[in-house]
Simulated assay, not measured.
Amino acid sequence: MTNRDEDERAATGSLLLDDQLCFALYAAQRAVTAAYRPVLEELGLTYPQYLVLLVLWERGETTVKELGAALRLDYGTVSPLLKRLESAGVVRRERAAHDERSVLIACTGRGEELRERAARVPSALQTATGLDGADVARLREELWQLTHRARTAAERPF
């Protein structure tokens, strides 16, 4: 089948699974997460835990609410991640002195030590996927554009 045939199927609203953008994104996300797994297992982290630590390494101490917003996750999803990371001694949680309703999250010394070891994760994934820096930058930019467009579309009725 030619690219033109594929373009025509997509334009006419094909219901074939492999023609669905959402399925291609889902399959890619699962494959990328699986590619991260061996490297993250060496650190004792799951992929979602790694994402939490990326935010904390970048921003330092932050609130649960801010962490959830950065990861685009709700409280019910973030809270169990934080509990497991706290049990592992990687993060600490404490009530904010200025507002006891707010919970602050920060890395412990162990969490900061993981940062040094995690520095090789991005290059390991790049090597595993065979993407060069330009490929990664282009793909990331296209995905952020798609994210923005999809969010905008979700906010307005058809």
Rank of each mutant, 00 (worst) to 15 (best):
E100T: 13
E100G: 10
E100I: 10
E100F: 07
E100P: 11
R101I: 04
S102K: 09
V103D: 00
V103I: 12
V103H: 10
L104K: 13
L104W: 06
L104A: 13
I105G: 02
I105H: 02
A106F: 01
A106L: 04
C107H: 02
T108M: 14
T108C: 13
T108K: 07
T108I: 08
G109H: 03
G109R: 07
R110D: 05
R110P: 00
R110I: 10
G111T: 04
G111L: 07
E112T: 04
E112L: 09
E112V: 05
E113A: 15
E113I: 02
E113N: 09
L114C: 12
L114M: 13
R115C: 13
R115G: 09
R117C: 03
R117Q: 09
R117N: 11
A118S: 13
A119P: 02
R120W: 02
R120H: 04
P122V: 10
S123L: 15
S123H: 10
A124Y: 01
A124L: 15
L125R: 14
L125K: 08
L125Y: 01
Q126F: 03
Q126V: 04
Q126D: 01
Q126E: 10
T127W: 07
A128S: 15
A128I: 04
A128M: 14
A128N: 12
A128P: 00
G130I: 06
G130N: 11
L131S: 07
L131N: 06
L131H: 04
G133T: 12
G133P: 08
G133L: 10
G133E: 07
A134Y: 01
A134D: 05
D135L: 09
D135E: 11
V136M: 03
A137N: 06
A137T: 05
R138Y: 14
L139M: 14
